[in-house]
Design a protein around this nucleic acid. Structure first.
Lengths: 144, 144
DNA sequence: CTGGCACTTCAAGCCAACTTGAGGTCAAGA
DNA sequence: TCTTGACCTCAAGTTGGCTTGAAGTGCCAG
């Protein structure tokens, strides 16, 4: 059993964030010592996954969905597959974007927007991206 | 020359967003017809790149930096390399995350947090991720 | 038993990225 | 010429993900 300060320290985020996550149902405290929340060590793994999910561009709500509301993995397999496919698309975009950046570093066209190699690289990413914008896999709150 | 409505239509985003982007220096209108902004067709490519950058998790400010403030690609090569490296890391994380999701779909351990295969897959992503959180490549406004 | 300090709650604030609304302008068609 | 409707500006509102501040509580040290 870890108290909130320990979780905060090992998890690398402020206690306020932990309270917020609990409020949002992303983590659960397993009891109290006095006022202080107590967590199982498990929560650290969960925090890592949350952080990972965030950096993958998912909202806390979506992450809550993937993790299962209360530690229970009541996750819908089909939905998971969808997420995985979304990630595939994103990965390909990022790869193209990265290649684009690397190309710009070494190519010395005055305007990269006119460099054919750059255009070719970017066209891949952009068309994929636009396609996904037209058919959003599921509701997205903010504009992508 | 495209008027704002045409850009909005082809670019797939509302005119309000275009005005906002201009205000933020991400795009430039090349004149007015009456009150109405006019843009060069170039702006469409720029918009795609902006959208792409956003989906890669960069802020509008960072994107402005990469694109060069005013169409000029006054981009610092070293900084670009850094961005590319960041993307590499992110790509590896997303790949692991995707594998994790696909695994969860097919593995029927009652709690995935206890399934060793899942743990192995996730450990890769998580450790990379945590490492990057400890040494943030550069200032990040929002918490990752 | 008495502090003190780290925790607690709750409300309000903050930033990014836009959107919405009120009130204004102006080119183009009838 | 005169209307009309799509644009304009500027201020304020919205959402997500937290942080901050004020006021309270309770374990542990002394």
């Amino acid at each position: 059993m870890l108290d909130i300060a320990e979780v905060a320290r090992s998890g690398g985020l402020p206690a306020s964030a932990l309270r917020y996550y609990e409020e949002q149902g992303l983590i659960t405290s397993i009891g109290r010592r006095g006022l202080r929340r107590l967590f199982e060590p498990d929560v650290l793994m969960r925090l890592s996954l949350i952080s990972l999910g965030q950096s993958a561009g998912f909202s806390l709500t979506e992450i809550a969905g993937m993790l299962g509301a209360a530690g229970v993995p009541k996750i819908d397999r089909e939905q998971l597959g969808q997420k995985a496919d979304e990630l595939d698309g994103k990965i390909r975009e990022l790869t193209a974007l990265r290649d684009g950046l690397r190309h710009v570093m070494t190519c010395s066209a005055t305007s990269h927007l006119e460099c054919p190699t750059f255009q070719r690289i970017m066209r891949v990413a952009v068309t994929r991206h636009v396609a996904r914008r037209q058919h959003p896999a599921r509701k997205r709150t903010g504009r992508k």
